[in-house]
Design a protein around this nucleic acid. Structure first.
Lengths: 201, 201
DNA sequence: GGTGCATGTAAGTGCCTGCTTGCACTCTAC
DNA sequence: GTAGAGTGCAAGCAGGCACTTACATGCACC
């Protein structure tokens, strides 16, 4: 084939899409192979198991997650700007690969190996944000009567539920006359008004 | 058996638990029957299909949901009180039966009938809240520069993600020294500070 | 005491699943 | 030009799956 080296990647891509829609148990190795344009035998030559595909995928996702959590604080911008940027990034990233991540989080319950992988990634992300928030609570840029981790959870709640509603459930509660960008901006504005110090509003 | 009449209910109960953990595809009819203390044949006599069990379950959930969305507005309390009560109810209800609801929402994608059922329930809930919010935007009790449905989404985002983190992923990002009640209260406070009219803060 | 109804038991059918084996092909590299 | 790695293809196997059939059992009501 053209680029024989990334056959494994193509299999993972296909698996990602199918797992996201049908779940782990609902996806067959034959379906993955077909979607990847690869023979089923090749799948088993590359990955020992069906579980092997899942764990490889889990590893890949975890790396991606770790990546953009670290890119959080360029420091030149205001807290509000940073958070808004983060929100957009979160939503974008979750829209792209996150339906899978959420779905895998479910399946992880039945597949301990993946549970272990994802179980690290998500709270790490949240903890990183909580740390950032706590720092800026200390400087008075954020209200300090709400626990930083509660705030972090609220933040991720907004972004993840935005994706949940839309991709996962195929439901878009926002009316058509509110554009995506506007929707995110308003959603963030609501969060921000709640998170900003009271005396500045 | 003792109460032969609710055999069907016992089957649904068992199915609910198993679906919540293993998903639809990952749960076998044999396992459901066994968990219900019923012969597998009985299951097929009660419900035409495995899909039949799923749709019956979907119907049951939808009825429960409809129930507590309607109980929203006793009118004697302030908007803030109403919303806080609603938040607690939401979280409680979702904590109890919601892991399944969320999980089903995933599986629903492969089973159009359930998708249709749940697809009505959730946005109906959201639409109902949005209507309530819009009313109180009009009276100035809520800020009106944010779309009511965006606000409703933010509200459900907080509650549903609270449950997501805890039950579904088995992760509790809040530190141990913030109690459940406190956590919800703070989470709500953040939402409320964002939703209240600016000039009142 | 017999008719119905809800259930249990035993056995099985056909399909699909994950996974394997054996063999042929086609590139790349030395 | 040959060795080796990566892939495809055809076939199949053993187990599990949803679902069926046929028959026996227990209980309720008339």
């Amino acid at each position: 084939m053209d680029a024989p080296h990334d056959t494994g990647e193509r299999i993972l891509d296909a698996a990602a899409e199918l797992f996201a829609v049908h779940g782990y148990a609902g996806t067959t190795t034959r379906a993955i192979a077909e979607a990847a344009g690869v023979n089923e035998v090749t799948l088993f030559r590359r990955f020992e198991n069906k579980v092997g595909v899942l764990t490889a995928l889990g590893r890949r996702i975890q790396q991606q997650q770790a990546g953009h959590a670290a890119a959080a604080a360029p420091d030149s911008e205001s807290v509000r700007e940073t958070l808004l940027r983060l929100a957009r990034m979160e939503i974008e990233a979750t829209m792209a690969g996150g339906a899978l991540a959420i779905r895998l989080a479910f399946d992880a319950k039945s597949v301990p190996e993946v549970a272990a992988l994802l179980g690290e990634g998500i709270p790490n992300n949240a903890a990183g944000l909580a740390e950032y928030l706590a720092e800026h609570q200390a400087t008075g840029e954020l209200r300090d009567d709400i626990d930083a981790s509660v705030m972090a959870e609220a933040f991720f709640g907004l972004t993840s539920s935005y994706v949940m509603y839309r991709i996962v459930m195929g439901v878009a509660p926002m009316p058509a006359d509110v554009s995506t960008d506007d929707g995110i901006a308003q959603l963030f504005d609501l969060f921000w008004s709640g998170a900003a110090p009271k005396e500045r509003v």
